[in-house]
C-alpha cells in the first residue's frame, strides 16, 4: 500500500513540476526553457538533494513512462488527418528521411572515429537519431551498449530541440514539410513534440519521418556497420 501512495505522490509531483515549467516557458519562450528540459533538470536536482535513487523515482515514473507506447500509437491520428498531404508528398518525405537516416548514422560514425572513440561506443552512437525503443534494438543487434545508446538518443533529442530553430534558419528551411522532416529524422519523438510549435502539418511530417526512420533504421543500421567495416 505505501508503494501505491509513493507512486501517486511521484506522479502528481512530476505533473505539477511540468505544468509549472510550462507556465515558465510561456512567460520566457527561450529554447533553453522548454518544459521537458527544465522539468527533467528540476527532477534530477530533487532526486539528488533528497538522495532518492532513480529506481525509487521510477516507482511512480514507470506509470508515466507506460503511456509512451499508446502515445506513439496516438501519432496515427495526425498522420490519418494529413493522409492526402502525405500521399502527395511521399517522394520528398521518403527522400528526406533516407538522407536524414544515412547522414545521421554515417556522420555519427565518422565524427566518433575522428575523436578516436572506442568501437563499442561508436556502435552505440550509430542509432542515436532513432526513437529509443528501436534504437535499443538496433544497438543490441550491431553490438553496441544499449544503455549508452539511450543516453545518446536523449542527447540527439535535446540538441535537436534546442538547436533546431537555429539550424533551420541557417540552412533556410521554411516549409512545414522540411521542418517536420528535419525534426523527426534527427530528433525522433522529442523533435516531434517540438514540431507542435510549427503546426499540425509539421507534426505529421515529423511523426511520419520518425516512424519511417525507425522502420528503415532497423533494416539499414547493420548495413552501415558492414559498409564501414567497424
Amino acid at each position: 500500500m505505501p508503494q501505491f501512495f509513493i507512486a501517486i505522490f511521484i506522479i502528481l509531483l512530476t505533473v505539477a513540476a511540468y505544468l509549472a515549467m510550462m507556465k515558465v516557458y510561456q512567460r520566457f519562450p527561450y529554447p533553453f526553457f522548454i518544459p521537458v528540459l527544465t522539468t527533467t533538470i528540476l527532477i534530477i536536482v530533487l532526486l539528488m538533494t533528497f538522495h532518492i535513487s532513480y529506481n525509487g523515482y521510477m516507482i511512480g515514473g514507470q506509470w508515466i513512462n507506460s503511456l509512451l507506447g499508446p502515445a506513439v500509437v496516438a501519432l496515427a491520428y495526425p498522420l490519418y488527418k494529413q493522409r492526402h498531404v502525405l500521399l502527395t508528398y511521399s517522394f520528398p518525405i521518403i527522400g528526406g528521411v533516407f538522407v536524414g537516416l544515412f547522414s545521421g548514422m554515417i556522420s555519427g560514425l565518422l565524427f566518433a572515429r575522428m575523436f578516436g572513440i572506442d568501437r563499442d561506443l561508436i556502435l552505440s552512437i550509430i542509432p542515436k537519431s532513432i526513437t529509443t525503443p528501436v534504437a535499443i534494438q538496433i544497438a543490441t543487434g550491431i553490438g553496441g551498449v544499449p544503455s549508452m545508446t539511450v543516453v545518446f538518443v536523449m542527447i540527439a533529442g535535446f540538441s535537436g530541440v534546442l538547436l533546431g530553430p537555429m539550424i533551420l534558419k541557417w540552412v533556410r528551411i521554411r516549409s512545414s514539410l522540411g521542418r517536420g522532416i528535419a525534426f523527426g529524422s534527427a530528433s525522433h519523438a522529442l523533435g516531434t513534440s517540438k514540431a507542435f510549435e510549427y503546426g499540425e502539418l509539421a507534426v505529421s511530417m515529423s511523426s511520419v519521418s520518425m516512424t519511417l526512420s525507425a522502420v528503415l533504421g532497423s533494416l539499414f543500421g547493420p548495413l552501415v556497420v558492414w559498409l564501414f567495416h567497424i
Binding site: 522539468t39 508515466i64 503511456l67 502515445a71 519523438a189
Partner: peptide, 13 residues
C-alpha cells in the same frame, strides 16, 4: 507528449 519523456530522461542520473 513531452511530459511522458521526463521519467526516461531523468535516467541520465
Amino acid at each position: 507528449l513531452p511530459l511522458l519523456f521526463i521519467p526516461a530522461m531523468a535516467g541520465v542520473i
